[in-house]
Design a protein around this nucleic acid. Structure first.
Lengths: 226, 226
DNA sequence: GTAGCTTTCGTACTTAGTACGGTGGGAGTG
DNA sequence: CACTCCCACCGTACTAAGTACGAAAGCTAC
């Protein structure tokens, strides 16, 4: 009765790729804290220690999936209009980070960037440089845009998944039921604006990005662009 | 020989305050991952389970110290010039987050804000509102400035502690020794600009903040300020 | 078939959070 | 003074997680 095949769950033979794939799926489904070696092994249909044949430790797994997240972000085309390209890659970054919110704190702070991460930064710098930005101005723009995009994603990730309607419960749950007028501006602002039907926090993204891009291309930074 | 006093380490009698104080000290010294119930108890001179008399669980401790971090950030004065006040509180926030880098990912994402956090947001909103910003414009400015400040702090926390000189080793260690010209712009940018003696990433903060504040007060957002 | 590789796994140790139920000592009461 | 009670603290122990170590199972080449 011990048939050689047909007994096994017939799974793919495991590989570093499949390990990272599974890890990404788990992190997306339940956040970083749900990604454990055991949960990953279970997902892959193997026993925990098998994973360690393909990765040295858990931190290598995390480096790997962070780089995968970076690889999902659209690169700016080096020959396009830099404002258009920056807008595209920023919107893409934001969309990607909404899919992988657990990655936001890690994107900027991992000290072992992978190839996709390096390619991404290379493309952004290239886009600015070929638009005529000086070295110094490229550094300024790069830090500014990146800080804004990732900072916004970080703020946004605090709110539950999607849509303007869920904001209501978050905002109200954050308000202390006691202490009625300790925070008058905050309460006024929340009730009069945030909780109003039309408000969508996500829409703030475009305002800030446009303002930044406009300011970066304004003539007040003379001698910088061609 | 069993003198009532003099035998004991003569420590203060523990309290919620002392628990949070100790937790903050440990997180500052070794990062969030070094803050464990056991390390905290050791720091306080008690046994692990004693801590649980004052807090329900570890996450309550983290909420507590995050709020303490917020309380260190200078509040904008409601009657000062809004640009001056925003600059002051932004610089203060950055300085505080350099002292407590472990807190950055948590500041925006904790769903249980403490009193200091609420006071802080209240003051920022109040400052903008009394400068004449409309509700909508306050929301725009708030999201923009906060995203930038916290995003910058997040980027900055990736670099090791301080100073322009340490950048060198980080930048070089990030470069793959193989693959010479896969990332031409990144390499050019790093060697020609970042690694040059005078470069200080921290100085980028002021550039971006000034650009944002200038753009927010420009007349192109007409009808918004008085 | 058997040596030697590749791949997977069993066992077990360590660190962490924390449930549950004490225990000691001081305050209050008779 | 003895007794009770409660507050502050702790001992024990269970569970989850990362991972060291080395063995087993299967595969390839001869």
């Amino acid at each position: 009765m011990k048939t050689d095949s047909g007994e096994r769950p017939a799974r793919a033979p495991l590989s570093r790729e499949r390990v990272l794939e599974g890890a990404l799926a788990i992190a997306d489904a339940g956040g970083l804290e749900s990604l454990t070696i055991r949960s990953l092994a279970h997902e892959l249909g193997v026993k925990p220690m098998s994973v360690y044949y393909y990765v040295a430790n858990k931190s290598e797994i995390i480096d790997g999936i962070v780089d995968r997240v970076f690889s999902e972000i659209e690169l700016p085309a080096p020959d396009g209009d830099w404002r258009t390209e920056m807008r595209r890659r920023s919107a893409s970054a934001r969309a990607v980070l909404r899919r992988h919110p657990w990655a936001i704190p890690l994107l900027q702070s991992r000290t072992h960037p992978g190839p996709a991460t390096l390619r991404h930064h290379d493309a952004v710098i290239g886009s600015l440089r070929s638009a005529g930005f000086s070295m110094a101005m490229t550094a300024h723009a790069f830090a500014l845009i990146d800080s804004y995009v990732f900072g916004f994603a970080l703020s946004e990730s605090a709110l539950p998944i999607n849509g303007p309607e869920t904001v209501t419960e978050v905002a109200t749950s954050m308000m202390p039921s006691s202490a009625p007028d300790l925070y008058p501006h905050l309460i006024e602002f929340t009730t009069e604006h945030i909780l109003k039907p039309g408000y969508d926090f996500g829409a703030e993204f475009d305002f800030g990005l446009t303002l930044i891009l406009d300011a970066l291309s304004s003539p007040s930074h003379a001698g910088i662009r061609p």
